[in-house]
């Protein structure tokens, strides 16, 4: 796939060319949205919105890393969604029993399939990490996800969020420190090699 040629074609209105770019990047973009928002439905909306916005603003892409440009758009979409949530907070639908008490593990949450123990632990660990990510301030979370989940270097992360390199270093260090403190509460889920000592 010649990315530059596809971008040029898409700029001239070739939607098929842009759709090929979408197929190449949709997993990364969805991952970014999911890790920042912590919810699949919201991540789905943000991803779709980001691709629409990217297509409409493709002329503003001035070369460089197309991945960084796309992740910047989806990160902005995530910020918009988080601001929207702040303005209009929603009440989660908690399942209750007949007496009105909350059910911690309703039957429709349970996975009917028999999962191996490792998968269960991995699933639980994933939830714990996502929980700790959700606890981070948004600015820290975005940088941690860009560098530690997406695997970007500092320069690319700075390009993505449009901040100086020093800001990236600072936010990443503070984000990791808070993650370390949060994950200590889930030490039993961690593999032996990863267990944190206090």
């Amino acid at each position: 796939m010649d990315e530059n040629a596809l971008i040029q074609d898409a700029r001239q209105g070739d939607l098929d060319a842009f759709n090929r770019l979408i197929l190449a990047y949709q997993d990364r973009v969805y991952n970014q949205a999911y890790r920042v928002l912590g919810e699949s439905q919201a991540a789905d909306d943000a991803t779709q919105e980001a691709f629409i916005s990217a297509y409409k603003n493709l002329r503003s892409f001035r070369g460089g890393s197309f991945r960084a440009w796309l992740l910047r758009i989806v990160t902005n979409a995530c910020y918009d969604e988080l601001r929207r949530r702040k303005r209009r907070p929603t009440t989660p639908l908690e399942p209750v029993d007949e007496s009105g008490d909350e059910i911690e593990s309703p039957h429709w949450i349970a996975d009917p399939g028999e999962l191996p123990e490792d998968n269960v632990v991995r699933g639980e660990l994933g939830k714990a990490i996502q929980h700790c990510l959700d606890e981070l301030p948004t600015d820290f979370r975005v940088v941690v996800v860009l560098v530690d989940v997406q695997g970007m270097d500092y320069l690319e992360a700075a390009d993505t969020i449009g901040k100086p390199l020093g800001t990236i270093k600072s936010r990443l260090a503070r984000g990791r420190t808070r993650m370390r403190e949060c994950l200590q509460g889930f030490w039993e889920l961690l593999p032996m090699s990863m267990r944190l000592e206090t």
């Binding site: 997993d27 969805y30 890790r35 991803t47 991995r122 660990l125 990490i129 990510l133 989940v149």
Partner: peptide, 11 residues
């Protein structure tokens, strides 16, 4: 630990 997060495929 953070890097061990599984990569989620787009739904």
């Amino acid at each position: 630990v953070i890097r061990s997060l599984p990569k989620i495929r787009a739904p």
